[in-house]
Amino acid sequence: MALAAVPATSPPPATLERARRGDADAFGGLVRERQRLVFGLALNVLRDRALAEEVAQEVFLQLHRSLGSIESEAHLTHWLRRVTSHRAIDVARHRRHAELSGLDEAPEPWVVRRDADPLVGRTLRRLVAALPPRPRTVVVLRFQEDLEPAEIARVLDMPVNTVKSHLRRALAVLRARAGQALGGAEVTS
């Protein structure tokens, strides 16, 4: 299985092995190295810092219980993307009604971002959060994690053509809505 490249900051292989043997410090190292990936993914899908923190913690607790099945660093990254995505989709589905009814009024979650253009960034995140959970996760995996459609398909257990279709339609919707929200000058096709 072709997995995504291991991040440059990945811990040395010994860390995974030590964590598998019950070394809490080594497991803490694994968490620190991967927390941006997991928390970032959950936050971009859920757009709620508290929920994203809860999902991210649960994912790492599940990882601790599943360390015996993790075969490599690349497998670890794939496993984290996969479990985080599915958990975030489940949570998003449960709170979808609330999102749809109050999204436009929802404030930007308490996060410090350094966007190239804060208004564009905030608007795009709000529009992405308004997509249905699965297309939303496809978009997040594509643009946060830079995954190709085939990799997204493996993470989400979804046919590649479905991933491509979600991407195509989501981008069209996002472009149109961003154009309406920001005006043509800020959004470039």
């Binding site: 928390f39 936050l43 971009n44 960034g121 946060q144 830079d146 959004v187």
Partner: peptide
């Protein structure tokens, strides 16, 4: 722009 907006946060 999307990539920039969706950069993962710590």
């Amino acid at each position: 722009q999307l990539r920039d907006a969706l950069r993962p946060l710590d």
